[in-house]
Amino acid sequence: MLEFWTKLWQWLPEILPVLWFATGMTVRVTIGALAVALAFGLVVALMRISPIRPIRYLALLYTDVMRGTPALVQLFIIYFGLSDLGLEFDPVSAAIVGLGMNGAAYAGEIYRAGIEAIHKGQLEASLSLGMTPLKAMRFIILPQAVRIMLPPLCNYAILLVKDTAIISTIAAPEIMFEARRLVQATFMHSISGQIYLLCAIFYLALTLPLSYVAQRLERARQRWH
């Protein structure tokens, strides 16, 4: 057992810088995918509550397809499939687009649930005061719904951090990809356990603050002052 730790200690100066830079990539992809998911998810949510039926169905179809197929498959379609059609992505862009489009389905559902959780009397009061539905959404419904949406959005961000591991399969140089490269380097295969343990710690360092924020938001969401 002691050998496990001494070996890790011995190789730490080689491993740490690699994983540290890889973490930067994981953070970049997470933030990029999150931005795509949050923005495109709002479009999906507004489409899902649209009064026009074909638009509602289109958004529902999108949500079902994105949630009903593995993100890994979607990623391969974007990275390998589209390049066959002449649309080439570098691994990082493909990862951001793929995870972002996938996340839009989840974010869209979170937005929609948040909007629908606001009592219909709020909309009626806004309309009766002369607001258009758009103004009611902007000034009355969304500010309230955001409180309901934030905790689940935070949980989604945690899932996203971990899901970035799948982009190692298209050679995006994030934590998991670099860890495997280290292990495959001939002189380090004997300490693969140590390396993957370090990986877990790096992921945890990213997700724990998010968990903390999610819990704080959860507690704050019923109070308005």
Binding site: H119, G121, Q122, E124, A125, S126, L127, S128, L129, G130, M131, K135, F139, I140, P143, Q144, R147, W224
Partner: peptide, 30 residues
């Protein structure tokens, strides 16, 4: 609708706004 006032059975005040902002929000935004 802006010219027709409606008082609801269940008030329907906006919980994220103070009493003052509840009253001021429509004159500002409408």
């Amino acid at each position: 609708r802006a010219e027709i006032g409606f008082v609801f059975q269940r008030f329907n005040l906006f919980p994220h706004l103070t009493a003052l902002d509840n009253v001021a929000v429509a004159p500002r935004r409408v």
